[in-house]
Simulated assay, not measured.
Amino acid sequence: MRLQGKVAIITGSASGIGRGIALAMAKEGAHIAVVDINEEKGQETLKELNELTESMLFIKDISKPESVTEIVQAVVAKFGKLDILVNNAHASRQALFADTTMDMIDLSFGTGFYPTFHFMQAAYPELKKTKGKVINFASGAGLDGQPTQASYAAAKEAIRAISRVAANEWGPEGINVNLISPIALTPGVEAWKQSAPDMYEAMINRIPLRRLGDPEGDIGRTAVFLASDDANYITGQTIMVDGGSIKLR
């Protein structure tokens, strides 16, 4: 129970990678605030979490900057503190670089970069009290410059940039800030697998470990490690949980 009694906010945790992280952390004893725009899926995840341990919370994220402080305050009011912030939520649309529009840029930054930025600022006073952990999300789309991913890659690299700044500034106060860059079999990828099996197989063959990560068993367990005392001497790092697809130097 490496996270026994810890309190975590996990954005985008109604499904996919966020849900996997929530389940992994709950099984290690953490209290989870499920923050997601999808209330139906969020309540389903909350029910799963409450079957593992009591005292979980769902908060609907309406994706407005002013709501972020209210979310942090609501979590602290219920649990008394905040130890872990996981900024997972992000939405984007794919297009060739020449066809990328400002609406696409605004969507990616509005659902990914800006919420990450605002949550970090709002959570900082509480994380300072608990010497807490921040886990943000990078992507191979930005690290490798994947085609059709201009808006997503830009937002993800911007998140990496502010994470490194925060790691330097907040390190003396005992706050760790790290990133996970995942490849995972999410519901969306599962649907794509069914509709384009040849393309899916080709992608698998480019991954050295020849499989996609499990949202809970691979991505979630990595998040548990980064949120635990075992990772107290790690900060400002991008952890590649991608089956060996990208090797950082």
Score class of each variant (00 low, 15 high):
194 Q>K: 14
111 T>E: 03
105 I>P: 06
204 I>P: 04
23 L>W: 08
156 K>I: 05
63 S>V: 14
201 E>H: 07
241 V>Y: 10
34 V>F: 01
28 E>V: 02
44 E>A: 10
37 I>C: 05
96 L>H: 11
245 S>W: 10
159 I>C: 13
200 Y>M: 12
227 A>H: 11
30 A>D: 02
10 I>R: 14
41 K>H: 02
128 K>Y: 03
191 A>E: 13
173 E>R: 03
111 T>K: 06
104 M>K: 06
185 L>C: 04
216 E>R: 14
119 F>H: 02
79 F>C: 01
127 L>N: 04
221 R>G: 00
98 A>D: 11
132 G>H: 06
108 S>A: 14
154 A>V: 13
225 F>Q: 10
1 M>F: 15
228 S>R: 06
220 G>V: 13
219 I>L: 13
48 E>H: 08
98 A>R: 07
16 G>R: 03
177 V>P: 03
44 E>Y: 00
138 A>E: 11
130 T>K: 09
115 P>K: 08
207 I>P: 11
146 Q>I: 07
157 E>R: 12
5 G>D: 15
114 Y>S: 00
116 T>W: 02
148 T>L: 00
125 P>H: 08
63 S>P: 11
137 F>D: 11
182 P>A: 04
21 I>Y: 08
115 P>W: 05
42 G>P: 02
47 K>H: 13
217 G>M: 15
145 G>A: 13
191 A>L: 05
17 I>P: 11
32 I>D: 02
130 T>N: 03
56 M>C: 10
230 D>W: 10
202 A>R: 14
49 L>D: 04
219 I>Y: 05
75 V>E: 15
193 K>N: 07
159 I>L: 09
94 Q>A: 11
13 S>N: 14
31 H>T: 03
8 A>G: 15
23 L>P: 04
120 M>V: 05
190 E>V: 01
83 D>A: 07
66 E>T: 15
107 L>C: 00
116 T>H: 03
230 D>S: 14
231 A>G: 09
206 R>L: 09
25 M>S: 05
14 A>E: 10
133 K>G: 02
81 K>S: 13
121 Q>R: 13
208 P>K: 13
95 A>F: 03
173 E>D: 11
14 A>F: 12
22 A>I: 05
221 R>H: 09
187 P>E: 03
66 E>H: 15
219 I>N: 01
17 I>Q: 01
152 Y>M: 01
67 S>W: 15
194 Q>Y: 00
112 G>T: 05
225 F>C: 08
51 E>T: 12
98 A>F: 05
218 D>A: 08
94 Q>M: 09
26 A>V: 01
222 T>A: 14
50 N>L: 07
169 E>T: 03
108 S>P: 13
42 G>K: 02
58 F>S: 02
190 E>S: 09
19 R>V: 00
115 P>N: 04
13 S>D: 09
122 A>C: 08
91 A>G: 00
25 M>F: 00
46 L>K: 06
150 A>V: 05
94 Q>G: 01
20 G>H: 03
190 E>K: 09
59 I>D: 11
1 M>S: 14
23 L>S: 00
